[in-house]
Structure formats: C-alpha cells, structure tokens
C-alpha cells in the first residue's frame, strides 16, 4: 500500500443523462479520516460508491475519469472487482447485519477468504469485536441472531464485520445518522480509533461530526467538489462563499 491512499482524477458519474458527480479530482490520505459534507443530493454518496465500484450494481449508472488505489486503476477492465472490494470495507447508513448469528456475521467473510482454522477464526472474531468496542456486550451471546442487537450495536457489528477481512480502506455512508446520540458517540470514538490503521472516507450531513472526527473535509455541492482542505481551516476560514454559507447553516 502506497502512502497515498486514494487518488481520484476528473471523475464524473452519470445516471442516465443526469450528471450526478461532476469532474471531481481529489486525493485521500492513508491512515486518516476524510469527511465528505454537503446538502443531500449533492452527489457525495454516489461519489463514495464509485470508490469500491458499488455503483456497478445500478443498471444505468456510468462513469468517466480515473480512480487509483495505490498503483492500481480500479476501473481498468482487468481489475478484479471481487479482490478490490475485499480491500475496501463499507459501512452503510442503516445497519445491515446479515441474518445470521453475531459470530457468523464476522467469521463469514474471513472463512470465505480461506481462514478455516476454528481457533484462528475465534481469535479473529474476538479481535474484531474488541476493535469495534462490542466484545464486552456480546461475548456471552455470540451465537444468537445479530438482528436482536440494538441499532447502535448492529452498526458497530457492521464495522467489526468489515474490519475482519482486513481491508486497507473503509468507506462510511452516514454511519451514525440512524443512531441515537449515545450510539453515535460510540461509533465516532470507534472511527477515531480506526484511523490509525485505515484510510477512512466518511460521508456525513452532520457538520459537528465532520469537525469532531476528520482531519480533512471535502465540501460537495450539486455534484461538484467546491472546496477541500484541512478540517480546521475549512470550518474556521473557508475560501469559497458557498462553503461558509453551508457551514454557517444558511442552507442545506
């Protein structure tokens, strides 16, 4: 993994004739948290989903431009999407644990990728749950259904699930927006912990959250990247007028 996490060059995404992301060029640092902010419908989620080619699933979505992860062009025809996605974890707005036990939710991916040894799997499950600060709450009921957990626990389980396959990058699409304040702060703590090991890109509509957890922030408006800077600079001294309007809550 090169020092440079993700490098995006002149990326545009179209849904049919509608251009949802417009000529975005941006770099994300490794071992860092970058927040994408902007009003809803500004293209930030669409942008995020192109980073692990999740937009491939949408029938009429189409993109131009380049995305490099390390020295690999992820849209190259020879790129193995399955291996690519294995290196990129993803966390969604609503918690989406598999309809399986807590243990299985985490062990499923690594086992599929070849880790068959039971005790190694057990260790990995514990390690992942500990990283996600969920071990203490769930160690006695690992084999009960994950759907019985609370929303906040489910979301942390989803984070544990994605780090269990040892990705380099984690994409998060408003991971705390469906959670209560206590769960939200737990998830935020967790993200700050994780940034030591991963390149994290997080979409959020909550500017305080962006200020709390990220070191860089990118502001999107109507599909365009308006401004990208260190979070502190961005929130105290934005260059563009749109950015300061949005941050001071004048729209969005």
């Amino acid at each position: 993994m090169a020092d440079k996490g993700i490098s995006v060059k002149d990326l545009s995404v179209y849904y049919g004739d509608n251009k949802a992301v417009k000529n975005v060029t941006i770099d994300f640092n490794n071992k860092d948290v970058t927040a994408l902010i902007g009003p809803s419908g500004c293209g930030k989620s669409t942008f995020l989903r192109t980073l692990n080619r999740m937009n491939d699933l949408i029938p009429n979505a189409r993109m131009t431009g380049e995305i490099w992860i390390g020295d690999e062009d992820i849209n190259h025809p020879k790129t193995d999407v399955v291996l690519l996605r294995r290196r990129i974890g993803m966390v969604w707005q609503r918690p989406n644990p598999f309809h399986k036990s807590i243990y299985e939710n985490i062990a499923f991916g690594p086992r599929y990728h070849g880790l068959k040894n039971k005790s190694q799997l057990d260790d990995l499950v514990e390690e992942s749950l500990r990283k996600a600060a969920l071990w203490e709450e769930t160690k006695d009921r690992l084999h009960t259904s994950a759907l019985k957990l609370s929303g906040g626990q489910q979301q942390r389980l989803c984070i544990a699930r994605s780090i269990a396959v040892k990705p380099d990058i984690i994409l998060m699409d408003e991971p705390a927006s469906a959670l209560d304040p206590v769960s939200t702060s737990k998830v935020e703590e967790l993200i700050s912990e994780l940034k030591q090991d991963y390149c994290i890109v997080i979409v959020t509509h909550n500017m305080h959250q962006a200020a709390r957890i990220s070191s860089k922030t990118a502001f999107f408006l109507s599909g365009e990247l308006v401004e990208y800077d260190n979070t502190e600079t961005m929130f105290t001294n934005p260059v563009k007028k749109e950015t300061s309007d949005y941050i001071s809550g004048r729209f969005g």
Binding site: L57, R85, M90, W92, N96, S162, V165
Partner: peptide, 23 residues
C-alpha cells in the same frame, strides 16, 4: 432481499454467486 444485504456481502469481497447463494 434488501439491497443493503447484497451490497454488504459484495463489499466483503464475496463473489456475486456466493452472495446470491449464501446471503
């Protein structure tokens, strides 16, 4: 099947076929 379930499986690096059959 909710779309997020399918996406979660694919994001873990599961093949499409594995996603369909086991998730």
């Amino acid at each position: 099947v909710p779309r997020e379930q399918k996406e979660a499986a694919l994001a873990l690096g599961l093949t499409k076929w594995k996603t369909i059959t086991s998730i």
